[in-house]
Each structure stands twice: as structure tokens, then as C-alpha cells.
Nucleic acid binder design. Structure first.
Lengths: 338, 338
DNA sequence: ATGAAAGCGCTAACAC
DNA sequence: GTGTTAGCGCTTTCAT
């Protein structure tokens, strides 16, 4: 029924080992032997059985990408970047959605699926530093995002504080003084929300602008709908403001829509800047200024780190931290004098 | 090093087969035996090796989803729907991006990765009916989308013609008569673009409105940027129009942005309706009317079909066609009298 | 530069 | 109800 190395070996008149050598690009094979084997492979339409290879070698050529949710544009674009980087390294990607639920996030790390992948790229939302121990597993793991620093694994993310600071300074430079910090998570210290709030405060302080607690708006989830709702509630309070530093693009877009409905002109009455540089920010009305977090770089480095761990053993070298460069992208929503 | 069934069997004082029975929920096991085995599994932290299971049983519990590109919101949301449906059936999903390139689309079906998945959900763009033969493979395959009808496999998609017709009729009912068909692919007969153009023409005909070739705008790719460019070129021609039937939401949004820049009020000067009901259409300015293609239903049925094929053999029963219900969603961009 | 043999961890077939 | 045995297709080790 299925064609195995045996069949190829028989047809080519060599041993199964030689076929294996050819398939795995082993160096020292007589060119004519190799040619004969390749011909046999071709004519039989042989493809190696990856389960068998996985069982024998312990490598499947598959890595897992664990994320909250593909409907979130940030993660969809991250997944795209990761899959491209992985494809360049000959790795396939198995995506697991865990929906931002802590139990699911942790469970995904310990299920049987782990025996089927060579390594894990882990970008989740609900974890915190008390869960560090959960990250110590036999499968190589690279952590993405802001939940844990100095953990037991490699960690690749962006310069959050500096990015938020740059975004805030960008609005301050236009003379704006009442800037909403939009998307805060109360009590959070080292998640994206926590770090970005730090950057926001640093920028205010450096500019001599007093921090005003009433301008910090909590937005629990970071989908568009949550941004819309958060802004609706904030506007209802009637607190004056002239700019919004949103902690991601999706909530910025949701908020912009609500602001516009309320007759607020962007950027004339209030400038807006987001975070993530998702595709659609170029085409909204107005287009959205944002911080490009260096997603491609993050994906490339993370896959690279993971590959090294897979080759060398999960705990062969001490954990590394990598912070990708960010870039401020100025568009219409924060156009000076707009 | 790794813990196997043997270890569990030894600890529980049973044979390896009994462990296997417990792991696979075999019915006839003495409750106390099962309990003893489960305890041993727990205390050793045993997880089954999926590569071994895959090799032995021929099933991996993984299905492949082959799509053009996750950056396209439609496919990201489709992937999300598919992963949820698959998770409900205990299946993991390996996503392969093929970028809308025909060679890559075909190759993905014949590579070694196929030996590692139980089945394939296949939603691609460049294939056409001349490629039908490529779909005849041993791995169960369910086709999504509009490229091939009555092919050799199960096929799940939406009512394209009827959906486009409903969208067009919606604008005609407001008295609009100069409707742009936006996103056409010249020469295409049975792709999404071809079918939606048929629906558009049917609606015109039924309303007694003459078809005007100059209102059919070609947009090759269906990303936001392509919609923006297509509309820019169309506006340059100065052809009058009072409505746009866009063949997907992304190009509708790109086009809307360009129209607004040109001073066209939506919907007052021109109404716009899209296709796909991607999340962001609720939050744009104006919000975008659209056709909901029934993505969740498509995903659910497709996974169901695939499961049946996996259980029963790829070619056990004749190929099936399933067309999901669509729904017209009226939002601001086509608000009557707007 | 190539071959022979062992066995990765599991499930299927059959025995008891 | 549970145990025994064989072997899925491959890579690894060792030999030549």
C-alpha cells in the first residue's frame, strides 16, 4: 500500500540505509548511487513518513505557536511572521488558540501535543510571574510578549517602555498636555499594559507634565469592541483631553470611531496614536499613527532561538532576552497642527 | 528518560495493553484496574507519544489547513473558526500558508507533510478546474471556497451568487442605479469574483437596469491596499456612480478610504456594501454593510465532513457539496436615504 | 561509502 | 477483562 524506504531500496538496488542517507542529504554518497536512489524515489512517488521519523529521531519538524486568538489582528500578523520565519527554517507551525484563559494557557504546555512538536513559541496574556515554574518543561520553549521577564526560558519581545514613551513624547511635542492613557490594566506591573503605562508616565515626567489619574482608562480586553466601549464610558465622564495614547491599535480604532461619533475631530481636537502597526491602520479614516513593534524581527529571532534550543537541548545554555527595535510611524491621526 | 506505557504498566502491575486500553477509553475495563492505571499515569506524569501512536495507528489527530495568507482578515477569521470546530472534535490544526501562488498551492498537497496529518482543509486562490486531478490524493481532503465545483472531493462554501445578488438588490432598492462591481477578475468564471459578478448581473437584470461594462472594476488581489489602488484608478476616469458592490470587505474598506479622501460622502453620494463580515467592518467610519458568509457553519461542516472521511476512507462515499446560508448585514455605509 | 540489525513507543490481532 | 506478540517506517549504531 504505502511506499517505504524498503521499496525504494529494492528498486535502486541499495540498502535502506543508503536511501535514508540520500533523503537526509548525507554528504558522502557516490553521485551515481545518489542519482539511482533519487530516480527510484521519483518513479515510486515516495515520501518519507514523518511519524516514523518523529518516533525514531525525536524530531517532528513541527513547532507549536500558542497564542490567545487569531481574530486579534496583532496575533494573526504575528502568526504570519512566525510561519514565514519557520518555513525558512524548514519548520511547520501548529497553532493553538488558548483564548487568553489562564487555565488553557497553562494546560497547553503540558498536554500530549507536546510530544508531537519540537518546540514551542509561547505568546499568551493571562500568565504572570507566579506561573514561572510552569514554563520549566522538557520541550524547548521561547517566550514572546511581556508577561514574564528573567524567566527560565529565552524571551523575545519589544522595547515596550521606550515605545510607549516615544508615542507619548510624539503627542507632547505638539503641545498636547491632556493625554489619555488608553488600555490600562489596573494592578498590572509587567504586562504590555503595565510597561506601556510606565513609558507614558516617564514621558510626562520628562516633559514636566503632571500625571493625572483620571486620564488613565482601563480597557480589559484589547479588541476593537472593548476600545469602543472604554471610550464611550470615558467620554461620558466629560473629562477634557487633547490626545490619546492607546496601548494597541485595535482599541485605538474602536475608540476613534466612538470619538468621531461624538463629534471629536481627529487630530484637530484630539490626536491618537496606537501600538502594533497592524495593516488596517494605514487605511482607516484618519489613518492611525502607531508604534511598529518589529514583529518580523521578533519572529525571526524567536524561531532562531528555538532552533538552537532544539539542536542543543532545552536547557543547554542560559536563558536569553532579546528586545526588538521599534519604530514610530506618524500618520494622520497625530498630524501636527491637524 | 521519557516515560512510556511500559513504565506505567510496571507501576500499576498490569500489562502495557491495559494501559493502552485505559488511555484510549476502552469500555470493558474493571473500574479498579482503570483507577490503578490512572493513578500510575498521574504519579509518573505520563503522556502518550503521539508520533508512536501516529506511526502505529496511521492517525495523528492533526489536520492541515491550507490557506493563502493569515494577514487577510477573512482567512484569519476562517482559521479561527476552523480551529474552534477542530478543537471540539479533538483535532489540532497545522496551518500552511501558500500565498495564493499556484505552484505552492499544488505542492502543499503532495509534500511529506501529508504523511503527518489525518486530513486537509483546502482553501486556495490560484487553482482552477484544470487542476482537479491534483486533488485526487490518498489523504482525505475537503475543499473550501469557490475555485472548483463538482470536483472529486467534498466541497463546502457559501451561496456566492445569491449573496452578491442580495447585496446588489439592497442598493438597487434604494433607487441607486449606477453600481460599481468592485473586485472583478476578468475571464474568471467560477472563482468568488466570477460568481459574485454573476449575482450582481442577475440583480441588475431582475431590476431592469442595464449592465454597464465601464462600472466593472478589476482588483487583482483582495487586500485593502489593492482596493485603495483600484478605487483611485477608477475615480481618475471620472465615471459617475452612486453605489459600490465590493466583492470583499478588505477592498471595500480600502476603496472607502480613497472615496472619502476624494470628498465622496458615504452613503449620501455613494453607498457601499462588502462581502465577508470581518470584525472590523463594525467599527469603521462609516460602518460597512456586508454579507456574512456563514464562516462558522462552513468551518463546522467542513471539519465534520473531514472527520467522516478520516473515519471511513478518503473515497468511501461520493463527494458532497454544501452551501452555507448567508446573511445581509445592513450598516451605515448603505443606510437608505443616508 | 554502504550494509545489517536493533528498536523508538505505540496499537491491532489474537489468545486466554 | 487482560496479556502476548508483532511490527508500523524510520534513524542510529556498529561493522565492513
Amino acid at each position: 500500500m504505502t511506499i517505504t524506504m524498503h521499496d525504494v531500496a529494492k528498486l535502486a538496488g541499495v540498502s535502506i540505509k543508503t536511501v535514508s542517507n540520500v533523503v537526509n542529504d548525507y554528504q558522502y554518497i557516490k553521485p551515481e548511487t545518489r542519482a539511482r536512489v533519487l530516480e527510484a524515489i521519483e518513479s515510486l512517488g515516495y515520501t518519507p513518513n514523518l511519524s516514523a521519523r518523529g518516533l525514531r529521531s525525536g524530531r517532528t519538524g513541527v513547532i507549536s505557536l500558542i497564542i490567545p486568538d487569531l481574530r486579534n489582528a496583532y496575533f494573526a500578523e504575528l502568526a504570519d511572521s512566525v510561519m514565514r520565519a519557520a518555513a525558512d527554517e524548514g519548520l511547520a507551525v501548529l497553532i493553538q488558540q488558548v483564548g487568553g484563559k489562564r487555565a488553557a494557557e497553562i494546560e497547553a504546555l503540558h498536554g500530549p501535543r507536546m510530544t508531537n512538536v519540537d518546540g514551542i513559541l509561547y505568546s499568551v496574556l493571562a500568565l504572570d510571574e507566579s506561573d514561572v515554574d510552569q514554563l520549566v518543561i522538557d520541550t524547548p520553549l521561547v517566550l514572546l510578549g511581556e508577561r514574564i521577564f528573567n524567566g527560565p526560558t529565552d524571551h523575545v519581545t519589544m522595547h515596550n517602555i521606550e515605545g510607549a514613551r516615544a508615542a507619548t513624547e510624539h503627542l507632547l511635542a505638539q503641545g498636547r498636555r491632556r493625554l489619555v492613557a488608553f488600555g490600562a490594566h489596573p494592578g498590572e506591573v509587567i504586562g504590555s499594559a503595565g510597561l506601556r503605562l510606565v513609558g507614558y508616565r516617564e514621558a510626562l515626567e520628562a516633559a514636566g507634565v503632571e500625571f493625572d489619574e483620571s486620564l488613565v482608562v482601563t480597557v480589559g480586553n484589547w479588541h476593537r469592541a472593548d476600545g469602543a466601549e472604554g471610550m464611550r464610558e470615558f467620554l461620558a465622564k466629560g473629562i477634557p483631553f487633547d490626545g490619546v495614547v492607546a496601548f494597541n491599535d485595535s482599541i485605538a480604532l474602536g475608540a476613534m470611531r466612538v470619538m468621531q461619533d461624538a463629534g471629536i475631530r481627529i487630530p484637530a481636537d484630539a490626536a491618537v496614536i496606537g501600538f502594533d502597526d497592524i495593516d488596517e491602520t494605514r487605511y482607516t479614516l484618519p489613518s492611525l499613527s502607531t508604534i511598529n513593534p518589529g514583529r518580523d524581527e521578533i519572529a525571526r529571532v524567536a524561531v532562531q532561538y528555538l532552533k538552537e534550543r532544539i539542536a542543543g537541548g532545552a536547557h543547554s545554555i542560559p536563558p536569553r532576552e532579546y528586545l526588538a527595535d521599534f519604530e514610530l510611524i506618524e500618520r494622520e491621526s497625530s498630524h501636527a497642527g491637524g
